[in-house]
Design a protein around this nucleic acid. Structure first.
Lengths: 363, 363
DNA sequence: TTGTATGCGTTATCAC
DNA sequence: GTGATAACGCATACAA
């Protein structure tokens, strides 16, 4: 009894049963408040509960899951846990899952395909009932998710679109984001605008650029080809800062009349500000800068950064809620069709952009 | 067979056995490469493996763990997953665990004691074999960890000292950090220095201040009592930014000759820079600012931030390695005594501090 | 060289 | 009202 606990290390249902003098089934029924427990005497219940509490009984999740065929676990695969983008989405997912009994198991693939596969395998062995993939700007190969689709595990990807797959997805409307960014600058009076686009490999880059081009056309604004730059591809999120700085320095050498820079994301924008500062140009007095994402950094920088905001926490909540819905629909054998969301971004105007004085206008 | 897979959803060892015509035990032995597999014919092995692969067999972690009494899981309790401090430690832990077969289960307590307890309970039910608690500046109650100690689960806490407990701990040497911060400013010629201390409730605050006082005494430097401020306690890490800004604004009103600010942490320092900027003071030309931690933000700000660096990633690695060592020693019934590490911080000199021109010296 | 039987801790179905 | 028993999927001691 007592010494059994010491030697075996763990208090089991049988231990509790032996201690309080009832059978394992009775104890189980009482502790789980199973339907049958209605017909068990209050005295018995009290004795069982007292014994369990005194002995520090804790149900074994393995045995329970093996029996019930339910793991109560949801896998969350993150591409870079050091990336604030992922981190805020995680926050949202957590919030949505808090009220449920599911345990979110977070895995950090660290932008490494091999790690991704390995962790995915481990999650599958642990019989996760659902999966959320949080993709930052890193490329996700659909093939990597084949195992998931095959196992028919409900899953949602956030931060990237996968129309070809049966997986639901949720991401920001990049096209609108690009549109809004340029519109913001234009409405402040800027006409001489440089653009730092994202890496060519990234779908996001194309979308944001398309939005920029659309606004330019609508507003009759001409963008100079030589003032449009591309970020090189990279696997490190902070690389954007240094590239943004490098490109801006280059830009300052050739572009005299430039009054504003539209950066691919916040880190790039921060890099641009750094370069402007080094070159003795004030932000926003001499040049406005707008970013994209609204990572926590953005509101803590000097000057605070104007940016196109992705509602990341909300996206996390939506992803988790969708996943729960898909999981719920599964046993009813009415699998929900994949749904693809595009969330609306919005401009957060802070101190890095300002209305251009009329005298400085060229156009 | 095939339809069984469809109806039941999962391929089991029995399915594979039936398919290839051998018994469950043979299949198990082959797939696990158990000792006995040495005496199994190559032909059998091949047929077994082929069947398993073809049917997409995956061992059930629940059944396996139930039987082997080993969960292969390590719990990682983080106090705020959105805090870069925690995030970098996580990165280190992951790195150290990558080469093992343990699955790290990350839980975000979100600075909420109730969440902490709930998740701890879930981890315990899942029979984690070890636990790492990543504490940022939030207060950890020892009582909360009572369950862990009682269950005799090897565990390590990083970011906070718990000498009273049997848990190993690893944290930065705050006293030395405070000492180095002031030394850095002093050696650059600063004599009129304001200090923004951390919240009073935080042990870190006292330690860092003690180091500052020790250096001041050694160098014969006098710190004005009225130039020493305290951050209020708060549960949100970004609060430091706004408090740092508020306090600095207040300081600028009263402290005319101040040439440097020693901030409690990086976010506070960033807030101070913001306030200086708003007041039209240049950093570092008019006032130097030094932070503490070296979060990723620090090197991406304008100007880049001089700070006292905590080797967070390395601390994560050390914590994980220590945990593995304690876990290994457990079955040998030679429990390792708790060990308490103090890692050395170092000053990273960037652009927010500069040598004071001789003409400006007062003292 | 391979098969049979048992138990890990739970829950659920039945019997008393 | 309560207790015996079977089964979840796997690993292993033992039998053949």
């Amino acid at each position: 009894l007592a010494d059994r606990k010491q030697t075996k290390g763990r208090t089991t249902l049988a231990d509790v049963a032996k201690d309080c003098g009832f059978s394992v089934s009775t104890v189980s029924i009482v502790l789980n408040e199973a339907p049958l427990s209605r017909s068990i005497s209050a005295a018995t219940k009290a004795r069982v509960r007292e014994a369990a509490a005194r002995m520090g009984y804790r149900p074994d999740a393995f045995a329970r899951s093996l029996r019930s065929r339910r793991s109560q676990q949801i896998g969350i695969m993150v591409f870079d846990i050091a990336d604030p983008f992922c981190t805020l989405i995680l926050r949202g997912i957590h919030t949505a899952l808090r009220s449920t009994d599911y345990l979110p198991i977070i895995m950090d693939a660290h932008n490494d395909a091999e790690q991704f596969e390995r962790y995915l395998g481990m999650l599958l062995e642990r019989r996760i009932e659902g999966l959320i993939v949080v993709a930052n700007w890193m490329f996700v190969d659909i093939k990597r998710l084949a195992a998931i689709e095959q196992e028919k595990i409900p899953s949602v990807i956030v931060g990237q679109q996968m129309r070809s797959s049966a997986m639901s997805s949720i991401m920001v409307d990049n096209e609108t984001g690009g549109y809004l960014a340029l519109k913001h600058l234009h409405q402040l009076g800027h006409r001489e605008i440089a653009v730092i686009r994202g890496p060519k490999e990234l779908p996001d880059s194309k979308k944001r650029w398309a939005g920029i081009v659309r606004y330019a056309a609508e507003a009759g604004l001409k963008l100079r080809r030589s003032w449009v730059f591309d970020l090189p591809g990279a696997s490190d999120p902070t690389a954007g800062f240094y590239e943004g700085r490098r490109i801006t320095t280059e830009l300052l050498g050739q572009a005299q009349g430039c009054t504003a820079i539209l950066a691919f994301d916040d880190l790039t924008a921060l890099g641009a500000i750094s370069a402007l500062h080094l070159a003795g140009r004030q932000v926003p007095e001499d040049c406005s800068v707008i970013g994209f994402d609204d990572v926590p950094n953005a509101s803590l920088s000097t000057p605070t950064l104007t940016t196109v905001r992705q509602p990341m926490e909300q996206m996390g909540v939506t992803a988790a809620e969708r996943l729960l819905a898909e999981m719920e629909s599964l046993p009813n054998s009415k699998p929900l069709p994949a749904k693809h969301w595009l969330t609306a971004p919005n401009v957060v105007a802070r101190d890095s952009t300002r209305r251009i004085p009329i005298s400085a206008k060229k156009h």
